[in-house]
Every structure is written in C-alpha cells, then in structure tokens.
C-alpha cells in the first residue's frame, strides 16, 4: 500500500470519534445533556491523543521497532488530532456554554483557574500544530526539537484542567496523571529492546 493511502486511513481512524459524535449530533442522539456529551467527549479525546503521541517513542523502543508508517508521521497525525479535538472542545464551550459572547468568555477565562489552564494548554498547542510540517522541521532544525518538548507541559495542563473541574471522583484524572508520569519516567532512560 502506498504511504499516502496508509496516512489517509490512519487519519480517518483518528477522526472516527469525531465523526461518531457528529453523526449522533445530527441524529439528536447525544443524551439528556448533549452539550456536556460534546464537551466531555472532545476533551477526553484530546487527552487520549496527547498521551498516545507521547507513547509512540517508548512503545517503539520497547516493543515495536518497525512501523508500517514512519514514526514521525504517526506522531504528527496523533498530535494534530489532539489539536483538532481541543479546537472542537473550545468551539463547543464558546458556542454553547458562552453563547458566542466574547466578553463572557474573557471573564470566564480570567476568573476560573481550570478554564485558564485549559486555554493555556490549547494556546501552547497552536505553535506546535503550525510547525508540525516537514518544512518547518527543516527550517527550525534543533530548535524544532526544543519547541516540541512543549507537548509535556501541555499534556500535564490538560490533565490538570480536567482534574480541577471534577466534583469528587478523581479516579479518571489521576489515572491519566499516572499514565503521563509513567511516560515521562520512560523518557528518562535509554530503554532496552524487549523484542
């Protein structure tokens, strides 16, 4: 299969949760609180894709040395998926929670730490999305590597954003934090190949 076809299929797979959500939206099948469903689902997938992006290197080193698609392209598509889900998440918040009222949104962001943290994470994702192409990678050289290390604080802020909005049950955000911690730790070591 040509690489372009593989990339297309992989991108489509990453888009499936969004397509599913859009389909349910059209069918008016998002449950009692459709906006909450949209908001939580897009938020969850943002975090999943951030964690998946971070898992690619350790998984390669530990288990799967050879990939059907070059690793950097997989990482790019996963990272861009996180960005797209984060944008959808913001759009749902701005359209339905803030009712397209910019003043209300600015006040909300300024007064509520968890919103501020989420906005910070999304803002930091923008330069990474813009510079995700090969052209930018060549142009920035070693700086590109440094810039894209922002994915670590972004993921942490994303999880923190989630943890700070939960009422009492911190199980899921703590689970994400644990996964993030493990991925960060793995990065500290030169991993042996298990395979």
């Amino acid at each position: 299969m040509p690489l372009a076809a593989k990339l297309f299929i992989f991108s489509l797979v990453c888009a499936l949760p969004g397509i599913d959500l859009g389909w349910k939206l059209l069918q008016d099948n998002l449950g009692a609180n459709p906006v909450e469903t949209l908001e939580h689902t897009t938020g969850d997938w943002t975090i999943y894709f951030l964690l998946l992006t971070l898992s690619i290197s350790p998984v390669q080193q530990l288990f799967v040395p050879k990939w059907p698609i070059p690793m950097h392209l997989i990482r790019r598509i996963l990272g861009l998926s996180a960005f797209v889900y984060a944008l959808l998440h913001l759009a749902v918040y701005f359209i339905f929670d803030m009712g397209l009222d910019i003043d209300a949104a600015v006040e909300d962001i300024a007064t509520r730490p968890f919103i501020m943290i989420g906005m910070t994470a999304l803002t930091l994702l923008i330069p990474l999305a813009i510079t995700s192409t090969q052209g930018w990678q060549k142009r920035l050289k070693r700086r590109w590597q440094q810039l894209h290390k922002l994915i670590y604080p972004i993921t942490f802020l994303g999880i923190l954003h989630y943890a700070l909005l939960v009422k009492a049950d911190l199980f899921m955000p703590l689970l994400y934090l644990l996964l993030f911690g493990i991925l960060m730790l793995l990065r500290q070591f030169k991993l042996p190949r298990l395979r």
Partner: peptide, 16 residues
Amino acid sequence: RRWSQAKERPLGSFFK
C-alpha cells in the same frame, strides 16, 4: 467556587 451559577441548561436543550 469554580463556575458561574448565573445560567442553567435545561436537560435536552443546547442553550442556557
């Protein structure tokens, strides 16, 4: 402490 209580979303509806 973490969110406004000025508006509410009736179940089944999109807007507040």
